[in-house]
Design a protein around this nucleic acid. Structure first.
Lengths: 115, 115
DNA sequence: GCGATATTTAGCCAATAGGTTATTTAGCCA
DNA sequence: TGGCTAAATAACCTATTGGCTAAATATCGC
């Protein structure tokens, strides 16, 4: 596991299953059993994903009877979002001219190839 | 490599070396040799990182004599940023009360004259 | 305490990631 | 052409990831 928090957050977000778990959790707290069902995945696999998310600070766990519900923790996401926003702002400034140029190209019906 | 673009982007951002490369590229195009030096890393390692970034659509390569400069491509970053922003907005709604509370804590004892 | 249910941990495995060095390919110039 | 420089590829190594099943642990209801 990469030690710095930003790396941990991005790594956690880099898996579609985990993003889907976050999407589910955005609807409200839920527990392993309820996550395992729609994802067609074993309990232990879900537990591992939750552990990754928890380690990244994206969720926290609690205890309710035999279940251990997970809920979102927005702080880590905020850090990642701010990193991205900062870069985007910087790049958008740098690429303002390019942006306008590309827009122009699109209106002319260009042939786009790279590499 | 994970197939979907969002996963590829987040995975690319999950490595501190690659984020540092992006930071360097934000200052302007540069080539492998110039990247390998400050990162104390072999050329092939840089090439691999650039390949990951390119695969995620975060950069593009070109050719200038023997060098193959890399430059930023903001589009993929935009997609990731938008994903995060969407989630943050949603969560922030959910966590509005907590946010306000935390803000209050920071201004502990101050006048609070927010709308 | 016993049994049922929910979750975690322990092993195990295959694939991927991130690094290395050595070799090959691509482009420039005399 | 041949030599020089920059970069990519090949081959290899180790650690991590993401999944599984089987076993262990935690909590509840009785």
């Amino acid at each position: 596991m990469n030690s710095d928090p930003l790396s941990a957050t991005f790594a956690a977000l880099a898996d579609p299953t985990r993003r889907a778990i976050l999407a589910r959790l955005a609807l409200g707290e839920t527990h392993v059993g309820e996550l395992a069902r729609p994802f067609a995945m074993s309990g232990p696999a879900i537990t591992k994903h939750l552990k990754v998310l928890e380690n990244a600070g994206l969720i926290s766990r609690s205890r309710a009877a035999q279940q251990r519900p997970a809920k979102l923790e927005p702080a880590a996401l905020k850090a990642a979002s701010e990193w991205l926003t900062a870069y985007r702002r910087f790049w958008d400034e740098k690429f303002d001219d390019l942006d306008a140029y590309l827009e122009e190209l699109q209106h002319k019906g260009e042939n786009n190839d790279h590499d």
